[in-house]
Write a protein that binds this DNA or RNA. Structure first.
Lengths: 197, 197, 197, 197
DNA sequence: AATGAATGAGCCTTCATTCAT
DNA sequence: TATGAATGAAGGCTCATTCAT
């Protein structure tokens, strides 16, 4: 029955997500997945023939969740204040920046390096661009209703996303304190709105 | 003989640098190093007991070069214009952002992920902070001599470095066009100086 | 229901025959059989517990067909000319020699090697001896009606069959041209009859 | 040192020859070879990357021995009687036919089937043709010195070799008694010389 | 009867590391 | 010092066979 197989597949994706979030991409072996899923070696191969195949499905599942989240934000733009939404957006980003364990980001970076000859397959690009657009929409809306003053929302959004990406990678390669993240986010916001310390 | 050993060690570092720059950290095996150095398997082990040990020396050598470069910039601050130096600094960063092959950066990221439990060993932190300080000095000097108008040079420098770091990692995980880098750098500079398109 | 089961069994044998004829014995897995029969893995096991068991049934079915064929020849000996029948017999052998694909012979050889400790199970022996006897009968009859001149039909038949067997195996291990087969068959026939080139 | 490596390689070939002679081609795993050579798994891979590679070297070594043997026969043709040499040749063939264990022939057949798409790589062809030529030379010489009476030595040699090949394969797939081999060899010889029972 | 998911034994291959020379 | 053959642990993968449904 296909439904049963789908359930199993979902179980594998869930468990594998934990494994990848905890151990990154390069260190994960089929054995690790098998142990996490409590299935047999051969059983796993019924669904996925390599960690790569499985990882891509893990990312796909994560992206689908993210998409929904982003759609929700845009939806809320109609009724909620831009500043409020911006704060929420940045709080989410901050969480992701500081969440060093249990995040797929390291695995994603590692996978990208692993495939560095084929960046067109990038699993990250879509996500980055979507988030940039969401942020831009918030800025545009804020401009319209006078909450923000921002000449070039697109450039501003891009700039902010690069900063955030920079903090994210730094958090994972050299560590970053929560205070520094806060300071930087305030710096960014001050460019187009008033922020009280 | 110590001198001879040092020469050998230097040769290994040089060849290994090429290997790591080309292949990253995770994919490099002792075999690759041995092949590049035209040395015997056992011979390499006389100097380094693992790729990790060797990689740390590679990074150390790279950092020493970088330090000299940075000292030069600070030296030149006394006589050269700040804008001129800033442009030179950013040009160097741009080069590094776009240089996807033959850069140790991917190896460094991969190594950081590999050691993610021990970020205090971070090979990257020192470099990031030093560069931030150099940039800050340039901004301070530019403020003093009226070339720039920048309230908070430290925050500005930090912000710029995060952006640059963000572009660097994006270049390696999803690709980035030269045009986008230029646009972003101009955006950054406009915050404290006049830039003609 | 027994009839239904027999039909299924026959279907499996037919499909498996194609698989073995195409791929030999050693390379065939249960998966291949299952795929060819469009049956479930477990379903196949209801009928056959191993490829070996199935293969033996395939051979049995093939042998039953062959037996009928041979009986037909002997039947025709009463009315047809010996030379004519001999030519037909050799033509069949030639076809088999040259038919490299879609012949069970490779599978049969492989199976024999696989069971080389138990040659008493030989699937091939019966077939070889029966064909030898058929050939001998043709020669005897030809002697009787003056078409052939052959001192020792039994030895002659055996000799011819060894030759044919030699060509068959050579065709499969090193290749043989049709011309060579023809030449050899003519050589054999000349020992007891007149053959025009 | 290359000499040492050559010795090792020779050791591996010797041991592997025994393994292939005993177990054929298809059943032999790297593990078997490793066990026979009393070396480590990784150690074997230093010399051979697959059973196939190793097998081809085993056959090559065997062929070199055979070539020497054949050259010796041709050498002896100048001084020895043809009948004597023929008897020796056939005795050797008889030995090979009956030697079911410790012969590479089954492995060779199995390998040929395994590579049945690429018969041009055949390891057997050269051997078969060389032996046919040797036999032909014996027949020609026997004709010249009046020991044999044989119209077409080439066709006769080919015919004999097919018979021998047929007996060889039959010996391995269905068994053959020594008496039958003797009877057949006598049958063959009677076609061009007098043979006492 | 029939299904096909699940199991686990077993083979293949690579690589860091050791060690006799 | 320097060599490179040798080791064996570890991961990848396949397949005959079983079993709950």
């Amino acid at each position: 029955m296909s439904e049963k197989a789908d359930n199993k597949r979902q179980l594998i994706i869930d468990k594998a997500t934990e494994v990848f979030a905890q151990a990154g991409y390069r260190d994960v072996t089929m054995k690790d997945i098998v142990a996490a899923c409590e299935i047999s070696r051969g059983g796993l191969y019924l669904y996925y023939n390599s960690t790569e195949e499985l990882f891509l499905d893990v990312i796909k599942a994560r992206d689908e969740e993210e998409e929904e989240k982003n759609n929700n934000i845009i939806e809320r733009l109609r009724v909620a204040g831009s500043a409020e939404l911006l704060l929420w957006f940045l709080k989410e980003q901050k969480k992701e920046i500081l969440k060093r364990k249990n995040s797929l980001s390291i695995a994603e970076y590692e996978y990208a390096f692993y495939c560095r000859e084929n960046l067109h397959n990038s699993t990250s690009k879509q996500r980055f661009e979507t988030e940039t657009q969401v942020l831009e929409k918030i800025l545009v809306r804020g401009n319209e209703n006078g909450e923000f003053i921002c000449d070039n929302p697109q450039a501003m959004a891009t700039n902010m996303m690069y900063c955030i990406e920079g903090m994210k990678i730094n958090a994972r390669t050299m560590g970053i304190s929560e205070a520094k993240v806060d300071k930087e986010l305030v710096f960014l916001m001050r460019q187009f709105m008033e922020v009280e310390e």
